[in-house]
Nucleic acid binder design. Sequence first.
DNA 1: ATTCTCACA
DNA 2: TGTGAGAA
Length: 129
Amino acid sequence: MSGNQIRRSMPILPIGTVMQLTDLTARQIRYYEEHSLIHPARSDGNRRLYSLNDVDQLLEIKDLLDQGINMAGIKKILILKTEPAPIETTTTKPEVSNEEVRKILREELLQAGRFQRPGMQNERPRFFH
DNA sequence: ATTCTCACA
DNA sequence: TGTGAGAA
């Protein structure tokens, strides 16, 4: 049950293939990398090589973006994906499932994200007066 | 043919 | 985020 995981994390896809698989432009794919949303491997003459996991990662990013979440939020969400089991605190109290924590955090991010979104690009954030 | 980085009438 | 230039 790990052979596939190994394969899924194997860096083999050139950016061109990833573009077709995700419907994202090379510009966007590289842009997300600049913001540490993905970490494709490099090879040959400095060419990016993506794994199937990276492709899934990008598809999720695209989704989150459509949902109105920004890079910062996506970054946090992605970290939750990477570190599924935060910390089994020493407290043996009736645990609040990680899923519960995630749900809450996800909602928070949705809120934060909705602020600077396309639609009212000209309006400046006038929090006061 | 592809992808990379960098810059922007 | 798009686009084009010059190199690899």
